[in-house]
Computed example of a mutant assay.
Amino acid sequence: MEKIGKIFTALFAVFIVFSIAGKASASELTQKQKESYYNEYVSIIEETNSKYDKDLKIAPIQEFTQEDWKSPEEFKKIVTDMASQEWVPVPKGNDITPFASSVGTKRVTKYLSGVSVEITVTGSFYTVLSGDRQVFGNIQSITSKADKGTWTQLSYSPKLLDLNRTYSIDIGGNFVYNKVTDSTNIHVEFFCTPTGAIN
């Protein structure tokens, strides 16, 4: 019985050791390890910019919080996705604009290391009667925000198409994710229905 107790104690000790080791993460790095990781991050940014002709920027090491520290492999995956993936429109779901409203929303998304990031664009428009239907008059405002990371809208360039029934809009801004900044553009199109609803 004593032998079984010793075996149990030994197994329990091994379990505890592996449990503690399993919980160690990049957020528990020493300062020296963080500096080593950061140097790898800088190299990854430089290589990625060169490969994809981008201008990604990394924040200073002192701005990194615990959740920002990733393994170099995961950091590289995030940065590669930021550089190589385009923002793509999200199919309309249940966010259809109410009847006769002059406000519409559009969403674009991309995946960064398997994580879906969305930017929602809200457009407020004046519509006018043209013949027997409503068409776009002009824009009151265009605003946008991201559900993850930080998106700062800097500019937008609208173009009217399809006899003023469609607004094609390019939006420029800075997207920051995991302390990496990407100066990028997103594209959305708003449609004015005959009754003035915005889709």
Rank of each mutant, 00 (worst) to 15 (best):
L129K: 11
G131L: 06
T120K: 03
V121R: 02
T152Q: 09
I169Q: 01
V117I: 14
S141V: 15
V128M: 08
I119F: 07
W151E: 14
Y126F: 15
I142D: 08
I169W: 02
L160S: 13
S157F: 08
Y156D: 13
Y167A: 12
S113H: 03
D170I: 12
T120P: 00
V128Y: 04
D132F: 07
T152V: 14
V176W: 00
V128W: 04
T122H: 00
V108G: 02
S155N: 07
I139E: 10
S168I: 09
D170Y: 06
V117L: 09
G137L: 12
V108Y: 05
N164V: 09
G149Y: 03
V115H: 06
A146R: 06
Y167V: 13
Q140T: 14
L129H: 06
S124C: 12
G172Y: 15
T109N: 03
T122M: 03
G149E: 03
S116F: 05
L112T: 06
I171E: 00
G131R: 01
V135H: 04
F175L: 02
R107L: 11
T143R: 02
N138T: 15
T166M: 05
Y156H: 15
F136I: 12
N174S: 10
L129D: 09
K145A: 11
Y167I: 12
G149M: 01
D132K: 04
G137D: 15
N174D: 13
T166Y: 04
F175W: 07
I139T: 13
K148W: 06
K148V: 08
G123E: 06
P158Q: 15
D132C: 05
D162C: 02
G149N: 01
T127L: 07
V121G: 02
K110Q: 10
Q134S: 04
R133C: 04
A146H: 09
L163S: 13
T166W: 01
R107G: 05
L160R: 08
T122I: 07
D132L: 09
T120D: 02
S130T: 11
S155D: 09
N164Y: 12
K110A: 09
Y167W: 14
G114I: 10
T127I: 11
T122S: 00
L154H: 05
T152K: 09
F125D: 07
I119Q: 03
F136D: 10
Q153W: 05
R133P: 00
S155T: 07
N164R: 07
N164I: 08
G114N: 05
K148D: 10
S144F: 10
G137Y: 12
S168P: 01
E118K: 02
I139D: 09
G149K: 01
L112Y: 10
I142A: 06
A146V: 10
V135R: 03
D147W: 08
V121E: 06
S124E: 15
L163A: 13
F175Y: 13
V108F: 07
D162A: 11
N174C: 03
